[in-house]
Amino acid sequence: MPKLVVVVDDNPEILSFLKIILEKNGYKVITSKSGNEALHILENVNKIPDLIISDIKMPEMDGYELFTKILENEDLKNIPFIFLTALNSEEQVLKGKSLGVDDYLTKPIKKKDLLAVMKGKLKRATFTSKPISISEDLNIELDDIALNLQDKPQTLLFLMKWSEDYGARLQFLFPKNLGSSEVQNLGQRLMQTAMSLRNREKDSEKLPIQGGVSVDLKSLHQKAYIYFDTIQNNDIYMMAVVTPKLNYNNILELKKTFKKMFLKMKQSKTFTVESYWKRIFYILNTT
């Protein structure tokens, strides 16, 4: 089913330009010439849109106010949002970031940039849309993972990377010979957990942009600890260990170890993930 995109701009030429490009690339498009009209459309549309693209400077209701109104609506607040902004408008970008918008398209809009930003935004939204139950101590349950661990080592180590350009990718897996689609799917779901926590930080001061969380993989009878952080260029990295047993002391020591690894990555220092494997294995078997 085509993704539904709402485009808001008081310039009819820009609306027409964006509508033509998006429809040619398989999107279904609803256009609106004002913030008030867009809000009315959003509150009465049959299908919740997959993405909103809005100009900032508009009469009556500008893009900032539209975005704020959307955040106040429980049915609409999770729709990905992209601002259109004029060239060299640093003040507009800073104000948008203070509201929680982190994606912008600069006018005049280039087709390649438009499609790339939309693709990244929609990938992240899809990746983080599956429900996850979070308790106050940040312990998460994932009970729909399918993975055959028979005749395989019971402890796995993942390094995943999330980029706006291509979504989630596996950077490292130990043991290396377990790169099956099932194992990679497990890494994807753990990365989804990290991204969900990071995105929900906007709605709760309890959830950090970087940090760790324990995960109960019920269907696998396994536990996991994941640690995530932004390294550079807004790329988010996640380190995760999956193991049969995980206690509080394990988690404390794993967090210290992962922090050291991420610090080296931030400082662009050379190191290998393998060099930390013995330390991680020691933590899991002695603490």
Rank of each mutant, 00 (worst) to 15 (best):
F228H: 10
E72P: 07
T257A: 02
G100H: 05
N88S: 13
E90P: 00
L66F: 12
V6W: 07
M265Y: 10
M118R: 07
V183T: 15
T126N: 15
P80G: 02
T193D: 11
E91M: 09
R200S: 10
L42A: 08
Q210R: 10
G187M: 03
L115K: 06
N73K: 03
I20T: 14
I82D: 10
F174H: 08
N250F: 02
V215T: 08
I209A: 03
R169P: 00
T287A: 01
R198D: 10
I134E: 04
P175A: 06
Y225L: 07
N36K: 09
V242K: 03
E205R: 04
K47H: 13
I236T: 15
K97E: 11
K123Q: 14
M191H: 06
K218N: 14
E253I: 01
K112S: 13
K130M: 09
F228W: 09
T68I: 15
K3W: 08
K97Q: 10
L122A: 06
L22G: 10
K24N: 14
M195Y: 13
S163P: 04
L156G: 05
T128K: 11
K256G: 02
Y104Q: 07
I283Y: 01
H40C: 12
L142W: 06
E60L: 04
K176D: 06
N25S: 14
A116N: 13
L105R: 03
N233G: 00
L254Y: 01
A168L: 14
D137M: 06
Q188W: 05
I134Y: 08
I56R: 03
Q192V: 06
A116Y: 04
N233K: 04
N247D: 15
K206W: 00
L42C: 08
P175Y: 03
S163N: 09
E65H: 05
T272S: 15
K3H: 13
D229A: 07
Y276D: 03
G96R: 04
I231N: 04
W162Q: 06
L178T: 05
D151R: 03
K152S: 11
F127K: 03
F81T: 06
L39D: 10
S204M: 14
I79Q: 11
M265S: 14
K110Q: 15
F158L: 00
E205D: 11
F228I: 00
D50P: 02
L252I: 12
L4C: 07
L149W: 07
P131H: 14
N148W: 01
Q210Y: 10
T193G: 10
Q184V: 08
T230L: 05
P49E: 13
V242T: 07
S181M: 13
